[in-house]
């Protein structure tokens, strides 16, 4: 019994497993950075949607409706690729000689010097930005709705105090908006957490990729424990992991809502 326990303990703490545990950091970074960016893009989008100028309003609502109208995974793949190509094109206009362009046989990049190699860090950053862009469109709608939920009297009072439009926006409107936006933002956060499972599509060695590698059947005793296909067990662990994260986030948002709603919302969610 103790020997079994020691054996399994050493199995789940071998080098490959430790790498798997370490790869949870990518998921967490992407979720946190993506969430923060989603709020930033959401605020920007909502401000555009509330703008005085028709063109800016059009930009805001086009952003939120187009991005919400296509699957998140499509944008998640497209944005990093497009960004990389954009940078490569920009670089190619500076560094490529006509001979180098003529010598290039592959369709992309324009010349070999313009090639931009993306490592894990770069892909992680780009993935976070595209998570922010995609879910910022959802946050735009949430925040736009929340801005309209702020009682008009509060804004009138602020104006009566002689605040300028910008002061009303920053000191009263956006401050009071959070309470109404939190339930919707909590939903957006849950979507972001679930979308972090897609990181492996951008060649990041994340938890999903490692679960696949660790669970793959092994028939060579020299490589490690001989076992057949155990992938479903590793995916089950991830399944439970994500459910736990959801549960924790729910508790955290409940606490936040109670805290920010003090004195504003009469009914406290139990």
């Amino acid at each position: 019994m103790t020997e079994d326990l020691a054996f399994w303990l050493s199995y789940i703490t071998n080098g490959k497993h430790l790498t798997w545990y370490a790869s949870f950091q990518f998921t967490i970074y992407a979720a946190l950075l993506g969430g923060a960016l989603a709020v930033v893009f959401g605020l920007t989008g909502a401000t555009l949607k509330n703008s005085r100028f028709f063109v800016l309003r059009l930009v805001g609502s086009t952003y939120s409706s187009i991005v919400r109208g296509v699957p998140d995974v499509l944008f998640f793949l497209f944005f990093p690729l497009a960004f990389e190509q954009g940078v490569e094109w920009l670089v190619s206009t500076q560094v490529c000689s006509p001979e180098a362009i003529a010598a290039q046989t592959a369709p992309w990049p324009p010349c070999r010097e313009a090639n931009w190699f993306l490592g894990t860090t770069e892909y992680l950053l780009l993935a976070s930005v595209s998570l922010g862009l995609v879910y910022g469109a959802f946050a735009t709608n949430v925040i736009h709705g929340a801005m309209r939920a702020v009682p008009a009297g509060q804004l009138e009072a602020a104006r009566a105090y002689g605040m300028s439009a910008a002061q009303v926006l920053w000191r009263v409107h956006i401050r009071q908006m959070w309470v109404y936006a939190l339930p919707g933002l909590s939903n957006v956060w849950m979507l972001i957490v679930k979308a972090t499972s897609l990181l492996s599509l951008l060649q990041i060695a994340d938890i999903v990729l490692w679960a696949d590698r660790l669970g793959a059947p092994n028939f060579l005793p020299t490589v490690g424990l001989v076992h057949d296909d155990w992938r479903w067990r590793y995916y089950l662990v991830l399944f439970v992991f994500y459910i736990l994260v959801t549960w924790l986030s729910e508790r955290a948002f409940e606490y936040l809502m109670r805290r920010t709603g003090r004195g504003i919302l009469s009914e406290v969610p139990a």
């Binding site: 679930k194 972090t196 999903v208 296909d229 995916y235 399944f239």
Partner: peptide, 19 residues
């Protein structure tokens, strides 16, 4: 099923069916 990603669910059920 609402608290976990569809992507993981796909992998989990497919690998379960494979095993």
């Amino acid at each position: 099923f609402r608290g976990s990603p569809l992507f993981i669910q796909f992998f989990m059920f497919y690998s379960l069916a494979l095993s």
